[in-house]
Design a binder for these strands. Structure first.
Ligand code: MN
Ligand code: MN
Ligand code: ZN
Ligand code: ZN
Lengths: 140, 140
DNA sequence: ATTTAGATTGTAATGATTACATTTTTATTA
DNA sequence: TAATAAAAATGTAATCATTACAATCTAAAT
C-alpha cells in the first residue's frame, strides 16, 4: 500500500511519461490500494470482472512498463512467482513460512553498512526476511 | 563460495543429520566451491559428466533437503529461476542489470534498524541490491 | 481521410518446478 | 546370510509462470 495518496492516477501516470489508458489506470489503482503484494494472476483475477476484455499479457506488459518507469517494484521473495508493489519507498518485506503472508516493515536501509565499492551503481535496495509471523507463532 | 573450508564433506553432512550419499557430497562440494550462485540447471550440467546417472529431480531433492537442514540458502534475486548459495553467513547480493552477474558483499545486517515487533520470529535475512557493476559501467 | 505509433489481444512456445510412481541402494533384523 | 524395511534416486508427465510473436484495435497527427 502506497502511503502517499495520489488523487488523480491519470495525471500521475502522465507525469511519469506513461499514457494513462483505462487498463493502466485500473491496474495501478489496484496495486496502490493493495496490501498483499499481488501476483500477476491475482491482479488479473481481481480486474477481469470489471474489465472483461483484459488479458493477462496486458497485465504483464503494464507491470513491466511501470517497473521500467520506476513507479512499481518487483518483489521476488516468493520462489516461483513474482509479486508487485506500488510502494517504491525504502522498506523491507517479511514472509511468513507458515501462512505465506508478506508483511511490510520499515528499515533504515540507507544507513546499512556494506563493503561495496563506490564503483557499484545501486538502483534498488531490497531487504527480505523470512520466519514466522506473530499470528502463526501464537497458534503453537 | 563458503569462506570456512570444510575438510570432509561427508562428515559435515553427517553432523547435520544428512546421509552423505555420493550425489549429495558432490552437489554440496560443487556449490561450496562456486562463486556464481548456480541454478539447478547449472549444477546439473556441471555434474552430469562426472555422474552420468544424475537426474535433475535429484538435484532439486538434494537442494531442498539442504535448505531444510539450513546448510544452503535460496537466492531469489533472479525473476524466473532460483539460485543457491552454500554460504549461509550474513551477506548481501548485488545483481548487475546489464551483465546479470551476481556479486557477494558484506553487510552489517544484524545492526539494521527496523520497526518489526519482537513477536516476529526471523529465520533468515536477505539483502538484494540491483544496479550496474563496475566493469559494465566502465564500458559506457 | 490517411498515416502512424502505441495499446491490446490471443495463441503458442518455453522453461522452471513439482507430482507421482518405479527402481535401486542401504540399513536393519531375523 | 537372507529377508525386510527404509531411504535414495530416477524418469515421465503434468503444472504453471512467463515470454515471443503476430494480429487487431485505438487514437493522435498530418
Ligand atoms: Mn511492500
Ligand atoms: Mn552469496
Ligand atoms: Zn503466518
Ligand atoms: Zn555487469
Amino acid at each position: 500500500m502506497k502511503e502517499m495518496k495520489i488523487d488523480n492516477i491519470g495525471d500521475f501516470l502522465k507525469s511519469k511519461n506513461i499514457k494513462p489508458s483505462f487498463q493502466r489506470i485500473r491496474i495501478f489503482e489496484y496495486l496502490m490500494n493493495s496490501i498483499e503484494h499481488p501476483t500477476v494472476d491475482e491482479i488479473y483475477k481481481a480486474l477481469i470482472g470489471e474489465i472483461p476484455t483484459l488479458s493477462k499479457t496486458t497485465v504483464y506488459n503494464t507491470l513491466n512498463l511501470f517497473i521500467e518507469k520506476r513507479i512499481v517494484h518487483m518483489v521476488t521473495i516468493e520462489e516461483n512467482e513474482v509479486r508487485y508493489d506500488a510502494d517504491v519507498s525504502d522498506h523491507g518485506h517479511f514472509k511468513c513460512d507458515i501462512c505465506g503472508k508478506v508483511y511490510d516493515f520499515k528499515a533504515n536501509i540507507i544507513e546499512l553498512d556494506t563493503d561495496l565499492s563506490e564503483s557499484f551503481i545501486i538502483n534498488q535496495k531490497d531487504i527480505f526476511f523470512r520466519g514466522t509471523c506473530p499470528s502463526c507463532s501464537k497458534k503453537n
